[in-house]
């Protein structure tokens, strides 16, 4: 089992936790560790730390362990946890804030999730819509999983889910303005690398 020396929590750790909770708009002291979030999470099986434990570790000041955790990157932000939390803690926002903090610290415990996010957002920023084929192709190239999902392509093409032409919105400049404004409101946050 793990051993935490609680006296070794540095002021830098506390500042990092303060920024994570501020970004997420969450008060860690609200959580009384009932575990309703973990029990309802569809992805908890894939997580090395349950959502409840992510909060517990942050309550204990163990931010470095949280930043190395796969859990926030596995989180699909389906919001089941937030909807059921008796204390109305915005757990999915907390997971995203942890991801931002990890990236700031140069960590990305689930490399593929980070690559996928960046490519997805870049695509939406450029075209205003997600183009599945392009996204899959770029993901496979960037991640090195060259043949992932390739066998699905003919079936998807047959059903018209992917095609040769790109989906675009009409006013792409508006899309860029939208992204610009969103980035400015988060004060130059480079979080998702958009």
């Amino acid at each position: 089992m793990s051993f935490y020396n609680l006296s070794s929590t540095s002021s830098g750790d506390l500042a990092a936790i303060a920024q994570i909770t501020r970004d997420a708009g969450v008060n860690l002291d609200d959580c009384y560790q009932c575990g309703k979030c973990s029990a309802g999470c569809p992805l908890s099986d894939e997580m090395d730390l349950y959502p409840r434990k992510v909060i517990r570790m942050l309550q204990l000041g163990q931010v470095s362990a949280v930043l190395k955790s796969r859990a926030p990157w596995v989180c699909a932000t389906c919001m089941t946890c937030t909807a059921r939390c008796p204390q109305q803690i915005d757990i999915d926002s907390l997971m995203l804030s942890v991801r931002h903090a990890a990236k700031r610290a140069g960590l990305r415990p689930v490399r593929e999730a980070d690559i996928f996010d960046d490519l997805f957002m870049a695509g939406v920023r450029r075209y205003g819509k997600s183009n599945e084929a392009l996204l899959a192709a770029r993901f496979n190239l960037s991640s090195g999983h060259l043949f992932q999902d390739v066998l699905n392509a003919p079936k998807m093409a047959k059903r018209g889910m992917i095609g040769p032409s790109l989906h675009k919105v009409k006013d792409r400049a508006a899309m860029r303005r939208l992204f610009g404004r969103a980035l400015r409101t988060t004060e130059g946050e480079k979080g998702d690398g958009i």
């Binding site: 560790q33 009932c34 575990g35 309703k36 973990s38 029990a39 309802g40 908890s44 349950y50 409840r52 434990k53």
Partner: peptide, 12 residues
Amino acid sequence: CLGEDTLAGATV
């Protein structure tokens, strides 16, 4: 019934 036993740290 799905829940977590937070003492075991496991969903049950």
